[in-house]
């Protein structure tokens, strides 16, 4: 019985659903709440974080036997900071407008707990291939989380989705949605939604076991 394909798929899906960084682990809230005022911002922040996550986890996993455990945190931070700097330059080269919109939150990816958490809990114990796939899953999960917030906030806050107007000229923007409280409202609503889903699932499960 081949164990490999399902294992890889599991590693990938872990970050997307079961251990979703935004909705399940509630990690990295600072960029989640701050930059998700529009779909484009959310997507680029997600992609930038995913890039840093995948490459730093890959490098850490590659060097895991070499890194002395006494200085591992310092090492991780150096590696993560390196890739954040790379992302910083790349975003500046791609679009200054995007760079201004994301502001300090690009540099703050360094202290995003998802990345350090993955490095410590996963990449330092697994071979590079698995670590990178897991990191990719986490990154995609984070991006999905950011998009879930970003699209809702953009639709209400500006009446657009990825810059495309949805409601025509005279749409009344809900200013609160692009302000910080809007981030909390939308995040809270999503958490409520997932909690309701979870509860329903458990009730069904309980009914099923009762019937059986």
């Amino acid at each position: 019985m081949s164990q490999s394909p399902p294992r890889t798929w599991d590693e990938f899906m872990e970050g997307i659903w079961r251990q979703n960084p935004v909705f399940v682990m509630v990690l990295g809230m600072c960029p989640t709440l701050a930059v998700t005022v529009s779909g484009v911002n959310a997507l680029s922040m997600g992609v930038a974080t995913t890039f840093v996550l995948v490459f730093s986890c890959g490098l850490i996993s590659l060097l895991r036997k070499l890194i002395p455990k006494e200085v591992r945190i310092a090492t991780y931070i150096v590696i993560i900071a390196t890739f954040v700097t790379v992302v910083d330059y790349v975003i500046q080269a791609v679009s200054l407008a995007l760079y201004d919109a994301l502001g300090a939150f690009i540099q703050l990816i360094v202290v995003n707990c998802i990345i350090l958490g993955r490095a410590e809990a996963h990449a330092s114990k697994t071979p590079p291939g698995v670590a990178m796939i897991n990191a990719l899953g986490m990154g995609v999960g984070f991006t999905i989380g950011l998009l879930a917030l970003g699209t809702v906030r953009e639709i209400f806050g500006a009446g657009t989705l990825f810059g495309v107007a949805l409601f025509g000229e005279s749409f009344q923007p809900w200013v609160v949605m692009v302000l910080p409280p809007g981030g909390f409202f939308v995040l809270g609503s999503w958490l409520l939604f997932f909690a309701a889903l979870e509860r329903r699932k458990q009730r069904k499960l309980a009914e099923a076991t009762q019937n059986a």
Binding site: V71, A74, T75, V78, A81, T82, Q92, A93
Partner: peptide, 27 residues
Amino acid sequence: TLGLLSAICGLIIVASYQGTYAAVQEN
């Protein structure tokens, strides 16, 4: 180990800085 790591990281940073410099200035 830390020295080696710093060298690798330094190399990556400098390379990306050089690679994107022209585009950033133009932007």
